[in-house]
Design a protein around this nucleic acid. Structure first.
Lengths: 245, 245
DNA sequence: GAGTGGTCTAGACCACTAT
DNA sequence: TAGTGGTCTAGACCACTCT
């Protein structure tokens, strides 16, 4: 790497500006998940900064969960892996206590006119066509969560070309491989409601019994909305634990 | 402050050991919420450390939300203030949009034999006497959350001496002032259920309609369990938002 | 053994706050 | 103006990983 000047707002601290550059290297694809980031040494020479300043920038990005550092090995771009995050919420015991990815079964995949609420979330024009899916997640053939998924047609058209039977239990790797779309982060919004007849049928519970509803808007590294998803699961299996200070 | 050697496990990094000392100063009451922590300069002289190392220890404690630093003013022990945290969960609009502490109305306060589940949570002997309370939280006279509260009798006996009408809308300041018990952190556990007849009556909703149930175990700085609380609120007012990466 | 990140030093200079 | 924390330098030494 050659010496280059630090770009960005001159009024910001140097370590912030270096962090901004590296963050943009990720959002714009020059650094991909799993890639090695240049070492502290390389960076401090390339940008002519003292090692302490470089370290501070990297520490910041580690704190943001964008990078991870390994003593003696190097600094790497973290692979986001929150597809299983839904299942932080739901208790599920396997006989041997090991964790497993629940089965994902696509019940329906059609091209539909996107409802306006979802169009706003996905930031696509109202009335556009989009991909709509109904998907069931099961553990030992017991339905745990019913999902309703919407994808912008433009980015995900290729997804319609593969057989739903060939889609595995995780969608995000397929989005990456088939459509070149990387999911990096998401917002989740959680509430509870009484089960509709349709939800009750899918989850094999009584109509009107309490279900948890989790809306997720998944985004790329640059914040572009990619996927909207509404998940409904049996409240009696739901359990969220948090520490507050 | 005079020079003193760093105690603690010699194999740990120095900044960790300094952080441990300061953390213990808080848990053991030598530093109280709102107190000023000795300045970077004072600490680096007292422990004969370089300023960078002291800063690293303090940064760690800031990250833990134990301290807060103000440029030009100093470093201070943060005042924990999560009594309002329940109301991160519940939507409530005031006409003018300002946030207000919801009303807290104590409906019952009695001395009871503690149920064994709660005894285990509070780490007190099964069968001990404890303080039991029923409390309703309201906004504009509309009940939002019904609470069931248990306190260990030993620490909170003085709480029985004050009139329930004199207890304000926040309990934790009263615990501090009347019983000398400081709440520092808590664990919360969240699920949903169908409203019982009793819960429905308190919240003025239909029996069987979905309610959110939030269990909280509040603890002191040293981790001693202080208060167990179960809150139930209308699911239609409940809304939890989070970002995942 | 070469390269990596983790810890630590001993300062300098600056921006902010209080008085 | 004195004291505080925030930024930054220019190293040293160590522990860990890879080959």
């Amino acid at each position: 790497m050659n010496a280059q000047p630090l770009s960005g707002d001159q009024r910001l601290p140097i370590y912030q500006r270096l962090a901004d550059i590296l963050r943009r290297d990720v959002t714009e694809g020059r650094l991909r998940p799993g890639d090695r980031v240049p070492s502290d040494n390389e960076l401090s020479h390339a940008y002519e900064l003292s090692p302490g300043t470089v370290r501070k920038a990297l520490d910041l990005l580690v704190q943001e969960d964008l990078f991870e550092r390994f003593h003696g090995r190097g600094t790497f771009v973290r692979r986001p892996s929150f597809d299983a995050s839904l299942f932080r919420f739901f208790r599920f015991r396997t006989p041997d206590g090991t964790k497993s990815v629940p089965e994902g079964r696509i019940l329906r995949r059609t091209r539909e006119k996107v409802p306006s609420y979802i169009a706003r979330q996905l930031k696509i024009p109202e009335g556009d066509a989009a991909i709509s899916m109904s998907r069931l997640r099961l553990i030992d053939d017991v339905p745990i969560v019913a999902e309703e998924i919407w994808l912008p047609l433009q980015r995900f058209e290729a997804f319609l070309d593969i057989l739903t039977e060939d889609v595995g239990n995780l969608l995000y790797p397929v989005y990456d491989e088939v459509c070149g779309q990387l999911i990096a982060k998401a917002e989740e919004s959680l509430t509870a409601e009484a089960a509709s007849a349709e939800t009750a049928r899918l989850l094999r519970i009584e109509t009107g019994s309490p279900v948890m509803m989790i809306d997720r808007l998944a985004k790329g590294y640059d914040g572009t909305p990619m996927e909207w998803r509404r998940s409904r699961g049996r409240a009696d299996l739901f359990h969220y634990h948090t520490e507050i200070r």
